[in-house]
Write a protein that binds this DNA or RNA. Sequence first.
DNA 1: AAGCAGCCCTAACAAATGTTAATGCCTATC
DNA 2: GATAGGCATTAACATTTGTTAGGGCTGCTT
Lengths: 239, 239
Amino acid sequence: MLESLYLNLGQHDALSDAEKALLAGAMTFERHFAIGQDIVASGSRPTYSTLILDGLAARYKVLEDGGRQFTSLQVPGDFVDLHAFLLKTMDHGIVALSPCHVMFADHARLRTITEQAPHLTRLLWLDTLVDGAIHREWIVAMGRRSKTSHLAHLVCELFVRLQVVQRTNGMSFHLPLSQAEMADVLGLSVVHMNRVIGALRRVGVVSWANHTVTILDWHRLQEIAEFDPTYLSMMREPR
Amino acid sequence: MLESLYLNLGQHDALSDAEKALLAGAMTFERHFAIGQDIVASGSRPTYSTLILDGLAARYKVLEDGGRQFTSLQVPGDFVDLHAFLLKTMDHGIVALSPCHVMFADHARLRTITEQAPHLTRLLWLDTLVDGAIHREWIVAMGRRSKTSHLAHLVCELFVRLQVVQRTNGMSFHLPLSQAEMADVLGLSVVHMNRVIGALRRVGVVSWANHTVTILDWHRLQEIAEFDPTYLSMMREPR
DNA sequence: AAGCAGCCCTAACAAATGTTAATGCCTATC
DNA sequence: GATAGGCATTAACATTTGTTAGGGCTGCTT
């Protein structure tokens, strides 16, 4: 059940059986969310953190004019709101972009982990640090990359992250976002999002249909994106 | 000497004298950096984390075409690279934007803190979580705010963060960035950065000269920015 | 005093991106 | 099988943003 979480945390450093048991012990009930449902509401003060077992979710903020911006995409094995364990108040919402199967980790039990399992605590901390590293990469992409490069970078990132938790199929993966939702990821208008996707298709590095992205030329895609996965810390080493 | 750090961490939750002593005990030597010098190099694997005692620094990435993007601004009391304690490899550089007085915290002693001081560990973790929250706010600003609003938001954020560590002077604060550097914060060209600053001046909410920003109309500035400081977690509560 | 470099600022024009609107293709529903 | 709604796509046009170039100011060096 928690295989994705073990794969996610375990990519950075070895995870002992005792630590896996501690994680399992922190879990409480499961739940399913339908597309478009809020998994966590902005402004709430959750007493548990949400682990994605299956599905795709996103953090987002909404502005007064109705504009929405996604600030992250969350894949299976991700805690979508582990930060709320210490930040306490959610300053953004989290929405299900596909049907989501999730499980909740009780904050009181997470606190016990911080008191009794320092190494596991560091791995959970690390998980939120990788989160931050991804945010920084997004900031760079939004500020200084061409839109095509930004999109290419996102495709690279998602492919690699999904591969870690075994959600890729050869060079393909499922990406259930509409172009309007993609526009809210990149910060573009829907029309321009369509142009940019078209551009990436036209150069022949990806095919993209029926919510399935297939990377046709990984080398060239990585080149367009200037993608360097260092920021994902996928190296297994003592932490 | 570590007053700024205590103010920074202490804004979120009470910091005991014992914890202050632990922090002080983790510190090693100090150093000064001149404007433009790299405090931490991209690609390095530091064995200590850098605390700003005084000055302004920034994280940045450089793209192949020479474009630079700042991903955060760091003020006194901030650890600029606390994340490197667990991420190990720096995927970005950190540069001094003003003369910087810094102090280094040894990673081995930070590890000891994670093993013996759970509450302090959570506060350090929290510090990096606020970092992430700021990143998310920047992503929203870059993606969905007008450039004027983005700049206004940045001014609000800096003012509030500097106020916590007592680096404001009434409604003014020192901002030693050239417009070219500001452009690398917002992801704009220098020319457009100049236009946007001019726009904010013209509406009369800030004055901005000699590297000093003065907020003339906080209420209206906050309105333009849609600034809500929740994400900075400035509420003192048990963590 | 002259010269130089860095920075702010502006103008004129080019390119990227947004807006509005329309079309066609699906699929779900009645 | 008719209809409506959601989505991808395109066109035409408006607005924002970037590029290139240059002027003026300041502080520093020679």
